[in-house]
Write a protein that binds this DNA or RNA. Structure first.
Lengths: 233, 233
DNA sequence: ATATTTACAGACAGAACGTTCTGTTTATTA
DNA sequence: TAATAAACAGAACGTTCTGTCTGTAAATAT
Protein backbone atom coordinates (compact mmCIF):
# COMPACT_ATOMS: atom_id res chain seq x y z
CA UNK A 1 0.00 0.00 0.00
CA UNK A 2 2.95 2.23 0.50
CA UNK A 3 4.08 1.92 -3.08
CA UNK A 4 0.50 2.38 -4.18
CA UNK A 5 0.25 5.75 -2.56
CA UNK A 6 3.60 6.85 -3.86
CA UNK A 7 2.71 6.13 -7.42
CA UNK A 8 -0.48 8.16 -7.43
CA UNK A 9 0.33 10.84 -4.92
CA UNK A 10 2.25 13.20 -7.16
CA UNK A 11 -0.39 13.90 -9.77
CA UNK A 12 -3.24 14.06 -7.30
CA UNK A 13 -1.40 16.31 -4.94
CA UNK A 14 -0.42 18.70 -7.66
CA UNK A 15 -3.95 19.00 -8.87
CA UNK A 16 -5.28 19.55 -5.38
CA UNK A 17 -2.59 22.09 -4.60
CA UNK A 18 -3.29 24.02 -7.76
CA UNK A 19 -6.98 24.15 -7.06
CA UNK A 20 -6.55 25.31 -3.50
CA UNK A 21 -3.75 27.74 -4.08
CA UNK A 22 -5.78 30.93 -4.20
CA UNK A 23 -7.48 29.89 -1.05
CA UNK A 24 -4.26 29.45 0.84
CA UNK A 25 -2.53 32.54 -0.42
CA UNK A 26 -5.48 34.79 0.16
CA UNK A 27 -6.03 34.93 3.93
CA UNK A 28 -8.41 32.16 4.78
CA UNK A 29 -10.73 32.66 7.80
CA UNK A 30 -8.35 32.17 10.67
CA UNK A 31 -10.14 29.66 12.81
CA UNK A 32 -11.68 27.61 10.05
CA UNK A 33 -11.15 23.91 10.15
CA UNK A 34 -9.22 22.71 7.18
CA UNK A 35 -10.14 19.46 5.55
CA UNK A 36 -7.50 16.79 5.27
CA UNK A 37 -7.30 17.43 1.55
CA UNK A 38 -6.73 21.12 2.15
CA UNK A 39 -4.05 20.46 4.70
CA UNK A 40 -2.24 18.11 2.38
CA UNK A 41 -2.52 20.43 -0.57
CA UNK A 42 -1.24 23.40 1.40
CA UNK A 43 1.71 21.56 2.80
CA UNK A 44 2.60 20.09 -0.55
CA UNK A 45 2.32 23.43 -2.28
CA UNK A 46 4.37 25.22 0.36
CA UNK A 47 7.12 22.64 0.28
CA UNK A 48 7.22 22.52 -3.50
CA UNK A 49 7.49 26.28 -3.76
CA UNK A 50 10.27 26.31 -1.20
CA UNK A 51 12.09 23.61 -3.13
CA UNK A 52 11.84 25.62 -6.34
CA UNK A 53 13.26 28.67 -4.61
CA UNK A 54 16.15 26.69 -3.17
CA UNK A 55 16.94 24.99 -6.44
CA UNK A 56 16.91 28.29 -8.26
CA UNK A 57 19.03 30.14 -5.74
CA UNK A 58 21.66 27.64 -4.69
CA UNK A 59 21.38 24.75 -7.14
CA UNK A 60 20.63 21.12 -6.55
CA UNK A 61 23.65 20.10 -4.48
CA UNK A 62 22.96 22.69 -1.78
CA UNK A 63 19.23 22.08 -1.79
CA UNK A 64 18.98 19.80 1.21
CA UNK A 65 15.75 18.57 2.69
CA UNK A 66 16.56 20.53 5.83
CA UNK A 67 16.90 23.72 3.83
CA UNK A 68 13.60 23.14 2.09
CA UNK A 69 11.87 22.40 5.37
CA UNK A 70 13.29 25.53 6.95
CA UNK A 71 12.31 27.78 4.08
CA UNK A 72 8.86 26.26 3.80
CA UNK A 73 8.29 26.72 7.51
CA UNK A 74 6.96 23.21 7.97
CA UNK A 75 8.21 20.40 10.12
CA UNK A 76 10.41 17.63 8.93
CA UNK A 77 7.63 15.19 9.64
CA UNK A 78 5.12 17.08 7.55
CA UNK A 79 7.43 17.00 4.61
CA UNK A 80 8.38 13.37 4.87
CA UNK A 81 4.74 12.48 5.24
CA UNK A 82 3.92 14.14 1.95
CA UNK A 83 7.18 13.24 0.23
CA UNK A 84 8.64 10.06 1.67
CA UNK A 85 11.87 10.53 -0.20
CA UNK A 86 13.72 13.39 -1.80
CA UNK A 87 13.10 11.88 -5.20
CA UNK A 88 9.38 12.05 -4.53
CA UNK A 89 9.69 15.75 -3.86
CA UNK A 90 11.72 16.38 -6.97
CA UNK A 91 9.26 14.44 -9.06
CA UNK A 92 6.45 16.56 -7.66
CA UNK A 93 8.38 19.74 -8.43
CA UNK A 94 8.79 18.71 -12.04
CA UNK A 95 5.12 17.77 -12.34
CA UNK A 96 4.00 21.05 -10.79
CA UNK A 97 6.25 23.17 -12.94
CA UNK A 98 5.05 21.32 -15.97
CA UNK A 99 1.46 22.21 -15.17
CA UNK A 100 2.31 25.82 -14.46
CA UNK A 101 4.34 26.24 -17.59
CA UNK A 102 1.33 25.38 -19.68
CA UNK A 103 -0.52 28.24 -18.02
CA UNK A 104 2.52 30.48 -18.40
CA UNK A 105 2.84 29.93 -22.12
CA UNK A 106 -0.88 30.48 -22.40
CA UNK A 107 -0.71 33.76 -20.52
CA UNK A 108 2.30 34.97 -22.47
CA UNK A 109 0.72 34.28 -25.82
CA UNK A 110 -2.11 36.40 -24.45
CA UNK A 111 -4.84 35.73 -26.95
CA UNK A 112 -2.89 37.44 -29.74
CA UNK A 113 -2.33 35.19 -32.72
CA UNK A 114 -0.55 37.52 -35.07
CA UNK A 115 2.43 36.75 -37.23
CA UNK A 116 4.49 39.00 -35.00
CA UNK A 117 3.33 37.13 -31.92
CA UNK A 118 4.54 33.87 -33.40
CA UNK A 119 7.94 35.29 -34.20
CA UNK A 120 8.22 36.38 -30.59
CA UNK A 121 8.06 32.74 -29.61
CA UNK A 122 11.78 32.57 -28.80
CA UNK A 123 11.42 35.44 -26.35
CA UNK A 124 8.50 33.78 -24.62
CA UNK A 125 10.47 30.58 -24.41
CA UNK A 126 13.40 32.43 -22.91
CA UNK A 127 11.12 34.19 -20.43
CA UNK A 128 9.61 30.94 -19.26
CA UNK A 129 12.87 29.00 -19.15
CA UNK A 130 14.84 31.63 -17.27
CA UNK A 131 12.44 31.84 -14.37
CA UNK A 132 12.94 29.94 -11.13
CA UNK A 133 10.57 27.05 -11.84
CA UNK A 134 12.19 26.13 -15.13
CA UNK A 135 15.68 26.60 -13.73
CA UNK A 136 14.69 24.31 -10.88
CA UNK A 137 13.64 21.66 -13.36
CA UNK A 138 16.91 22.02 -15.25
CA UNK A 139 18.78 21.53 -12.00
CA UNK A 140 16.77 18.43 -11.24
CA UNK A 141 17.31 17.04 -14.71
CA UNK A 142 21.04 17.54 -14.51
CA UNK A 143 21.16 16.04 -11.05
CA UNK A 144 19.10 13.05 -12.17
CA UNK A 145 22.09 11.89 -14.16
CA UNK A 146 23.64 10.98 -10.85
CA UNK A 147 20.63 9.01 -9.71
CA UNK A 148 19.31 6.31 -12.06
CA UNK A 149 16.15 5.80 -10.00
CA UNK A 150 15.32 9.45 -10.26
CA UNK A 151 16.16 9.59 -13.95
CA UNK A 152 13.81 6.70 -14.58
CA UNK A 153 10.88 8.46 -12.96
CA UNK A 154 11.55 11.73 -14.77
CA UNK A 155 12.12 10.32 -18.21
CA UNK A 156 8.51 9.94 -19.25
CA UNK A 157 7.55 13.28 -17.78
CA UNK A 158 10.23 14.96 -19.83
CA UNK A 159 9.06 13.41 -23.07
CA UNK A 160 5.49 14.35 -22.25
CA UNK A 161 6.57 17.94 -21.78
CA UNK A 162 8.47 17.99 -25.05
CA UNK A 163 5.71 16.51 -27.12
CA UNK A 164 3.10 18.79 -25.65
CA UNK A 165 5.23 21.87 -26.23
CA UNK A 166 5.87 20.92 -29.82
CA UNK A 167 2.20 20.42 -30.54
CA UNK A 168 1.29 23.72 -28.95
CA UNK A 169 3.83 25.63 -30.99
CA UNK A 170 2.62 24.08 -34.21
CA UNK A 171 -0.94 24.98 -33.33
CA UNK A 172 0.13 28.50 -32.48
CA UNK A 173 1.83 28.82 -35.85
CA UNK A 174 -1.29 27.71 -37.66
CA UNK A 175 -3.53 30.09 -35.75
CA UNK A 176 -1.09 32.91 -36.44
CA UNK A 177 -1.37 32.40 -40.16
CA UNK A 178 2.26 31.48 -40.65
CA UNK A 179 3.06 28.84 -43.23
CA UNK A 180 5.16 25.86 -42.21
CA UNK A 181 8.88 26.30 -42.66
CA UNK A 182 10.64 24.29 -45.35
CA UNK A 183 13.40 23.74 -42.78
CA UNK A 184 11.09 21.70 -40.56
CA UNK A 185 9.14 22.73 -37.49
CA UNK A 186 10.49 20.18 -35.03
CA UNK A 187 14.12 21.06 -35.69
CA UNK A 188 13.40 24.77 -35.32
CA UNK A 189 11.53 24.22 -32.11
CA UNK A 190 14.25 22.04 -30.68
CA UNK A 191 16.86 24.59 -31.58
CA UNK A 192 14.97 27.48 -30.06
CA UNK A 193 14.39 25.59 -26.83
CA UNK A 194 18.01 24.50 -26.66
CA UNK A 195 19.21 28.04 -27.26
CA UNK A 196 16.87 29.43 -24.63
CA UNK A 197 18.00 26.81 -22.16
CA UNK A 198 21.65 27.46 -22.92
CA UNK A 199 21.13 31.18 -22.47
CA UNK A 200 19.25 30.67 -19.22
CA UNK A 201 22.19 28.68 -17.91
CA UNK A 202 24.64 31.36 -18.93
CA UNK A 203 22.42 33.93 -17.26
CA UNK A 204 22.99 32.14 -13.98
CA UNK A 205 26.67 33.01 -14.05
CA UNK A 206 27.38 35.89 -16.36
CA UNK A 207 25.10 38.57 -14.91
CA UNK A 208 25.41 40.24 -18.30
CA UNK A 209 21.71 40.57 -18.95
CA UNK A 210 22.04 42.96 -21.83
CA UNK A 211 24.21 40.64 -23.84
CA UNK A 212 21.78 37.80 -23.31
CA UNK A 213 18.90 40.00 -24.29
CA UNK A 214 20.64 40.75 -27.56
CA UNK A 215 21.02 37.06 -28.24
CA UNK A 216 17.31 36.54 -27.64
CA UNK A 217 16.51 39.40 -29.98
CA UNK A 218 18.73 37.84 -32.58
CA UNK A 219 16.91 34.56 -32.20
CA UNK A 220 13.58 36.29 -32.83
CA UNK A 221 14.98 37.90 -35.94
CA UNK A 222 16.21 34.54 -37.11
CA UNK A 223 12.70 33.18 -36.74
CA UNK A 224 11.48 35.62 -39.35
CA UNK A 225 14.15 34.33 -41.71
CA UNK A 226 13.16 30.70 -41.27
CA UNK A 227 9.53 31.04 -42.27
CA UNK A 228 8.41 32.01 -45.75
CA UNK A 229 7.38 35.65 -45.91
CA UNK A 230 3.66 36.37 -46.12
CA UNK A 231 1.93 38.92 -48.35
CA UNK A 232 2.64 41.70 -45.87
CA UNK A 233 6.41 41.37 -46.01
CA UNK B 1 53.00 28.20 2.56
CA UNK B 2 50.13 25.88 2.05
CA UNK B 3 47.98 28.55 0.45
CA UNK B 4 50.95 29.61 -1.64
CA UNK B 5 51.22 26.24 -3.24
CA UNK B 6 47.53 25.95 -3.83
CA UNK B 7 47.35 29.20 -5.71
CA UNK B 8 50.06 28.31 -8.20
CA UNK B 9 49.72 24.55 -8.41
CA UNK B 10 46.83 24.29 -10.84
CA UNK B 11 48.37 26.08 -13.82
CA UNK B 12 51.82 24.61 -13.34
CA UNK B 13 50.56 21.10 -12.93
CA UNK B 14 48.40 21.30 -15.99
CA UNK B 15 51.24 22.47 -18.10
CA UNK B 16 53.55 19.78 -16.83
CA UNK B 17 50.91 17.10 -17.32
CA UNK B 18 50.31 18.18 -20.88
CA UNK B 19 53.97 18.18 -21.73
CA UNK B 20 54.57 14.76 -20.27
CA UNK B 21 51.44 13.07 -21.50
CA UNK B 22 52.86 11.37 -24.56
CA UNK B 23 55.65 10.05 -22.48
CA UNK B 24 53.31 8.47 -19.96
CA UNK B 25 50.83 7.05 -22.40
CA UNK B 26 53.41 5.54 -24.63
CA UNK B 27 55.17 2.84 -22.60
CA UNK B 28 57.99 4.44 -20.79
CA UNK B 29 61.08 2.33 -20.05
CA UNK B 30 59.88 0.18 -17.19
CA UNK B 31 62.60 0.60 -14.68
CA UNK B 32 63.40 4.23 -15.28
CA UNK B 33 63.42 6.53 -12.36
CA UNK B 34 60.81 9.19 -12.65
CA UNK B 35 61.59 12.67 -11.51
CA UNK B 36 59.36 14.24 -8.90
CA UNK B 37 57.91 16.51 -11.55
CA UNK B 38 57.06 13.55 -13.72
CA UNK B 39 55.42 11.70 -10.87
CA UNK B 40 53.32 14.70 -9.99
CA UNK B 41 52.34 15.35 -13.56
CA UNK B 42 51.32 11.74 -14.13
CA UNK B 43 49.12 11.44 -11.10
CA UNK B 44 47.57 14.82 -11.73
CA UNK B 45 46.81 13.89 -15.30
CA UNK B 46 45.45 10.49 -14.36
CA UNK B 47 43.22 11.88 -11.67
CA UNK B 48 41.95 14.72 -13.84
CA UNK B 49 41.07 12.33 -16.65
CA UNK B 50 39.26 10.06 -14.24
CA UNK B 51 37.34 13.03 -12.87
CA UNK B 52 36.29 14.05 -16.36
CA UNK B 53 35.02 10.55 -17.08
CA UNK B 54 33.06 10.41 -13.85
CA UNK B 55 31.54 13.85 -14.35
CA UNK B 56 30.52 12.94 -17.86
CA UNK B 57 29.05 9.58 -17.02
CA UNK B 58 27.29 10.11 -13.71
CA UNK B 59 27.19 13.87 -13.20
CA UNK B 60 28.60 15.98 -10.44
CA UNK B 61 26.54 14.74 -7.50
CA UNK B 62 27.67 11.16 -7.92
CA UNK B 63 31.26 12.08 -8.65
CA UNK B 64 32.79 11.47 -5.24
CA UNK B 65 36.45 11.69 -4.50
CA UNK B 66 36.44 7.97 -3.74
CA UNK B 67 35.00 7.23 -7.16
CA UNK B 68 37.62 9.33 -8.88
CA UNK B 69 40.38 7.68 -6.90
CA UNK B 70 39.09 4.25 -7.75
CA UNK B 71 38.78 4.95 -11.44
CA UNK B 72 42.15 6.64 -11.61
CA UNK B 73 43.76 3.73 -9.89
CA UNK B 74 45.68 5.89 -7.48
CA UNK B 75 45.59 6.03 -3.73
CA UNK B 76 43.55 8.47 -1.77
CA UNK B 77 46.73 9.94 -0.41
CA UNK B 78 48.17 10.56 -3.85
CA UNK B 79 45.11 12.45 -4.83
CA UNK B 80 44.81 14.54 -1.70
CA UNK B 81 48.47 15.39 -1.98
CA UNK B 82 47.96 16.79 -5.45
CA UNK B 83 44.49 18.18 -4.83
CA UNK B 84 44.04 19.04 -1.16
CA UNK B 85 40.34 19.68 -1.64
CA UNK B 86 37.70 18.68 -4.11
CA UNK B 87 37.44 22.26 -5.28
CA UNK B 88 41.12 22.17 -6.17
CA UNK B 89 40.50 19.15 -8.36
CA UNK B 90 37.51 20.73 -10.07
CA UNK B 91 39.46 23.88 -10.70
CA UNK B 92 42.23 21.84 -12.28
CA UNK B 93 39.72 20.01 -14.44
CA UNK B 94 38.35 23.27 -15.78
CA UNK B 95 41.83 24.63 -16.43
CA UNK B 96 42.90 21.46 -18.21
CA UNK B 97 39.80 21.29 -20.35
CA UNK B 98 40.24 24.92 -21.22
CA UNK B 99 43.74 24.25 -22.52
CA UNK B 100 42.65 21.17 -24.42
CA UNK B 101 39.70 22.89 -26.03
CA UNK B 102 41.98 25.40 -27.61
CA UNK B 103 43.83 22.54 -29.27
CA UNK B 104 40.54 20.87 -30.16
CA UNK B 105 39.15 23.89 -31.94
CA UNK B 106 42.46 24.26 -33.67
CA UNK B 107 42.44 20.67 -34.87
CA UNK B 108 38.83 20.83 -35.96
CA UNK B 109 39.36 23.95 -38.02
CA UNK B 110 42.15 21.93 -39.62
CA UNK B 111 43.99 24.61 -41.54
CA UNK B 112 41.05 25.17 -43.87
CA UNK B 113 39.93 28.76 -43.88
CA UNK B 114 37.18 28.65 -46.44
CA UNK B 115 33.84 30.33 -46.27
CA UNK B 116 32.26 26.91 -45.87
CA UNK B 117 34.57 26.09 -42.99
CA UNK B 118 33.45 29.20 -41.16
CA UNK B 119 29.80 28.33 -41.61
CA UNK B 120 30.51 24.96 -40.10
CA UNK B 121 31.49 26.71 -36.91
CA UNK B 122 28.29 25.71 -35.11
CA UNK B 123 28.99 22.07 -35.82
CA UNK B 124 32.51 22.34 -34.48
CA UNK B 125 31.19 24.07 -31.40
CA UNK B 126 28.65 21.32 -30.90
CA UNK B 127 31.29 18.65 -31.38
CA UNK B 128 33.55 20.18 -28.79
CA UNK B 129 30.81 20.95 -26.28
CA UNK B 130 29.16 17.54 -26.42
CA UNK B 131 32.31 15.64 -25.56
CA UNK B 132 33.13 14.48 -22.05
CA UNK B 133 35.55 17.27 -21.14
CA UNK B 134 33.12 20.06 -21.97
CA UNK B 135 30.22 18.24 -20.35
CA UNK B 136 32.37 17.83 -17.27
CA UNK B 137 32.94 21.57 -17.18
CA UNK B 138 29.24 22.25 -17.56
CA UNK B 139 28.57 19.95 -14.64
CA UNK B 140 31.15 21.76 -12.56
CA UNK B 141 29.74 25.13 -13.50
CA UNK B 142 26.23 24.14 -12.56
CA UNK B 143 27.43 22.61 -9.31
CA UNK B 144 29.42 25.72 -8.48
CA UNK B 145 26.16 27.54 -7.89
CA UNK B 146 25.88 25.51 -4.72
CA UNK B 147 29.35 26.42 -3.57
CA UNK B 148 30.24 30.13 -3.46
CA UNK B 149 33.92 29.44 -2.84
CA UNK B 150 34.10 27.26 -5.92
CA UNK B 151 32.13 29.74 -8.00
CA UNK B 152 34.55 32.47 -7.03
CA UNK B 153 37.56 30.53 -8.23
CA UNK B 154 35.89 29.55 -11.50
CA UNK B 155 34.46 32.91 -12.40
CA UNK B 156 37.58 34.45 -13.89
CA UNK B 157 38.47 31.27 -15.73
CA UNK B 158 35.06 31.25 -17.36
CA UNK B 159 35.37 34.81 -18.57
CA UNK B 160 38.85 34.08 -19.88
CA UNK B 161 37.47 31.18 -21.88
CA UNK B 162 34.64 33.25 -23.31
CA UNK B 163 36.82 36.15 -24.35
CA UNK B 164 39.37 33.90 -25.92
CA UNK B 165 36.76 31.97 -27.86
CA UNK B 166 35.18 35.13 -29.16
CA UNK B 167 38.48 36.51 -30.39
CA UNK B 168 39.36 33.26 -32.10
CA UNK B 169 36.07 33.10 -33.93
CA UNK B 170 36.39 36.64 -35.15
CA UNK B 171 39.88 35.90 -36.40
CA UNK B 172 38.64 32.77 -38.10
CA UNK B 173 35.94 34.75 -39.85
CA UNK B 174 38.45 37.25 -41.14
CA UNK B 175 40.80 34.59 -42.41
CA UNK B 176 37.91 32.84 -44.12
CA UNK B 177 37.06 35.92 -46.11
CA UNK B 178 33.64 36.39 -44.58
CA UNK B 179 32.47 39.93 -43.99
CA UNK B 180 31.23 40.89 -40.54
CA UNK B 181 27.53 40.40 -39.96
CA UNK B 182 25.32 43.45 -39.59
CA UNK B 183 23.62 41.60 -36.75
CA UNK B 184 26.78 41.68 -34.66
CA UNK B 185 29.41 39.05 -34.14
CA UNK B 186 29.30 38.77 -30.35
CA UNK B 187 25.56 38.15 -30.24
CA UNK B 188 25.82 35.49 -32.92
CA UNK B 189 28.67 33.79 -31.17
CA UNK B 190 26.87 33.84 -27.86
CA UNK B 191 23.76 32.40 -29.43
CA UNK B 192 25.63 29.62 -31.19
CA UNK B 193 27.44 28.62 -28.03
CA UNK B 194 24.26 28.73 -25.99
CA UNK B 195 22.43 26.60 -28.55
CA UNK B 196 25.25 24.09 -28.69
CA UNK B 197 25.36 23.90 -24.93
CA UNK B 198 21.61 23.49 -24.70
CA UNK B 199 21.71 20.73 -27.29
CA UNK B 200 24.57 18.98 -25.54
CA UNK B 201 22.52 18.95 -22.36
CA UNK B 202 19.51 17.54 -24.16
CA UNK B 203 21.74 14.92 -25.72
CA UNK B 204 22.50 13.65 -22.23
CA UNK B 205 18.89 12.59 -21.74
CA UNK B 206 17.09 12.23 -25.01
CA UNK B 207 19.29 9.69 -26.78
CA UNK B 208 17.70 11.00 -29.98
CA UNK B 209 20.93 11.77 -31.77
CA UNK B 210 19.38 12.21 -35.17
CA UNK B 211 17.04 14.92 -34.04
CA UNK B 212 19.87 16.80 -32.41
CA UNK B 213 21.96 16.44 -35.51
CA UNK B 214 19.20 18.05 -37.50
CA UNK B 215 19.15 20.98 -35.11
CA UNK B 216 22.89 21.42 -35.53
CA UNK B 217 22.51 21.32 -39.30
CA UNK B 218 19.83 23.93 -39.04
CA UNK B 219 22.12 26.12 -37.01
CA UNK B 220 24.79 25.89 -39.71
CA UNK B 221 22.27 26.86 -42.33
CA UNK B 222 21.22 29.80 -40.23
CA UNK B 223 24.83 30.93 -40.13
CA UNK B 224 24.80 31.35 -43.88
CA UNK B 225 21.75 33.56 -43.55
CA UNK B 226 23.31 35.82 -40.95
CA UNK B 227 26.36 36.82 -42.95
CA UNK B 228 26.19 38.85 -46.16
CA UNK B 229 26.58 36.62 -49.21
CA UNK B 230 29.90 36.81 -51.03
CA UNK B 231 30.43 36.93 -54.80
CA UNK B 232 30.11 33.16 -55.07
CA UNK B 233 26.57 32.99 -53.70
C1' DA C 1 76.28 9.08 2.00
C1' DT C 2 73.19 11.60 4.59
C1' DA C 3 69.66 14.89 5.17
C1' DT C 4 65.72 16.90 3.50
C1' DT C 5 62.07 17.59 0.71
C1' DT C 6 58.49 15.70 -2.11
C1' DA C 7 55.22 12.04 -3.42
C1' DC C 8 52.46 8.43 -1.88
C1' DA C 9 49.57 5.12 1.12
C1' DG C 10 45.75 4.24 3.87
C1' DA C 11 43.39 4.71 8.20
C1' DC C 12 40.63 7.91 10.93
C1' DA C 13 37.35 11.47 12.45
C1' DG C 14 33.91 14.86 12.11
C1' DA C 15 30.00 16.59 9.75
C1' DA C 16 26.01 16.38 6.97
C1' DC C 17 22.47 14.27 4.78
C1' DG C 18 18.38 11.34 3.86
C1' DT C 19 15.46 8.23 5.95
C1' DT C 20 13.02 5.93 9.61
C1' DC C 21 10.54 5.67 13.72
C1' DT C 22 7.64 6.80 17.76
C1' DG C 23 4.38 9.74 19.63
C1' DT C 24 0.72 13.51 19.08
C1' DT C 25 -2.88 16.23 17.03
C1' DT C 26 -6.52 16.88 13.75
C1' DA C 27 -10.12 15.35 10.74
C1' DT C 28 -13.44 11.85 9.11
C1' DT C 29 -16.51 8.01 9.65
C1' DA C 30 -19.83 5.02 12.04
C1' DT D 1 -19.59 10.35 20.81
C1' DA D 2 -16.31 6.64 19.78
C1' DA D 3 -13.22 4.64 16.54
C1' DT D 4 -10.30 5.02 12.81
C1' DA D 5 -7.41 7.13 9.63
C1' DA D 6 -4.72 10.85 8.07
C1' DA D 7 -1.52 14.72 8.92
C1' DC D 8 2.00 16.38 11.62
C1' DA D 9 6.10 16.91 14.93
C1' DG D 10 10.67 16.04 16.00
C1' DA D 11 14.15 12.96 17.74
C1' DA D 12 17.31 9.30 16.34
C1' DC D 13 19.77 6.34 13.22
C1' DG D 14 22.84 4.76 9.82
C1' DT D 15 25.25 5.93 5.84
C1' DT D 16 28.32 8.47 3.06
C1' DC D 17 31.62 11.86 1.93
C1' DT D 18 35.27 15.05 2.58
C1' DG D 19 39.26 16.56 4.86
C1' DT D 20 42.99 15.39 8.03
C1' DC D 21 46.63 12.90 9.93
C1' DT D 22 50.39 9.62 10.69
C1' DG D 23 53.61 6.76 8.62
C1' DT D 24 56.49 5.12 4.40
C1' DA D 25 58.95 5.28 -0.07
C1' DA D 26 61.21 7.83 -3.55
C1' DA D 27 63.87 11.62 -5.27
C1' DT D 28 66.86 15.64 -4.69
C1' DA D 29 70.16 18.48 -2.31
C1' DT D 30 74.30 18.91 0.58
Amino acid sequence: MESDRQSTTAAQGVRAATENKQMTEAGRPKGRRRSQAERSAETRSTVIDAAIQCLFEVGYAATTTSMVVERAGVSRGAMTHQFPSKVDLMEAVVATVYDREIEDYEALSGGGRSRQAFFDFPRRTWTVLSRPPAVAVTEIMMASRSDPAMAERLRDQQSRIDENARKRVEAFRNESGVAASPLGGPAIHRLVVAAARGLSIEALYSQDDESIDQAVDLLCQIMTLLYPPSDGD
